[in-house]
C-alpha cells in the first residue's frame, strides 16, 4: 500500500540487548538529560512582576479615545454595538448642551457607554466599525474582580485621561512615563 506520507517509520521489535536490559546505562542517560535541564533558561515569565511585551495591534481591554483638545470622540452612533458579535456594548446617546463644546467633539455624545468585559471576545470589530476613531483596544488585559458587576466597564473606566488637563496620567497610561 502506498504510504500517505514519508514520516512513518518501521517499529524496531528486536529484543533488548544485554546493555539495554541492565537498565542502569539508560537510567544514567536519562539522569544526565534531566540534570542538563536544570541549567536551561526557563521560559516562564514572573507575571505580575514582569510582563510580556505585546505587539501594538494586541487586542486587550477597550479605551474610549479623546481628541487632542481632550474632547470625547464618541458620538454614540451605535455602530460598535451593532458590530459586536458578543453583544457586549450598550450605550445611551445624549445631545450636547451649550457650553459643553470643550467636553464633546460633536453635537451628540454617549451619556452612558458600557462594555461587559465578561461577554466581550476581544475581536476588535468595534474598533474597526467606529467611524470616529473613538474606541480602541489597548494592550492591557486580564481584568480581575470579585463580582460580575465589576466587569461591566462604564465611561469612567474606559475614557483615556484628558491630554489637556491630565497629561501625566495619559503618558503613564500609554506606558511612556
Amino acid at each position: 500500500m502506498q504510504a500517505l506520507t514519508q514520516r512513518s517509520r518501521a517499529v524496531d521489535r528486536k529484543p533488548l540487548t544485554l546493555w539495554e536490559r541492565i537498565y542502569l546505562p539508560a537510567v544514567l542517560k536519562g539522569m544526565t538529560i534531566t540534570f542538563g535541564h536544570m541549567f536551561k533558561k526557563r521560559p516562564t515569565i514572573n507575571y505580575p512582576e514582569k510582563t510580556r511585551p505585546f505587539s501594538p495591534v494586541f487586542r486587550g481591554l477597550h479605551v474610549l479615545n479623546r481628541d487632542e483638545e481632550g474632547r470625547e470622540r464618541c458620538t454614540a452612533c451605535g455602530l460598535c454595538a451593532v458590530a459586536c458579535p458578543a453583544e457586549a456594548i450598550t450605550m445611551e446617546a445624549a445631545e450636547r448642551k451649550n457650553g459643553e463644546e470643550g467636553l464633546y467633539r460633536e453635537e451628540k455624545y454617549a451619556a452612558r457607554y458600557e462594555i461587559n468585559m465578561l461577554r466581550c471576545i476581544f475581536c476588535g470589530l468595534c474598533e474597526e466599525a467606529c467611524p470616529k476613531d473613538a474606541i480602541y483596544l489597548s494592550e492591557t488585559f486580564a481584568p480581575s474582580n470579585f463580582a460580575r458587576k465589576g466587569f461591566i466597564y462604564g465611561k469612567d473606566d474606559l475614557l483615556i485621561p484628558n491630554p489637556k488637563t491630565q497629561p501625566e496620567e495619559l503618558a503613564k497610561a500609554r506606558g511612556e512615563a
Binding site: F35, H37, K40, T44
Partner: peptide, 13 residues
C-alpha cells in the same frame, strides 16, 4: 523546586 528545575519551570516562589 527540583521537579520544577528539571522541567524548566520555576517552582514555588
Amino acid at each position: 523546586k527540583v521537579a520544577a528545575w528539571m522541567q524548566d519551570r520555576r517552582g514555588p516562589n
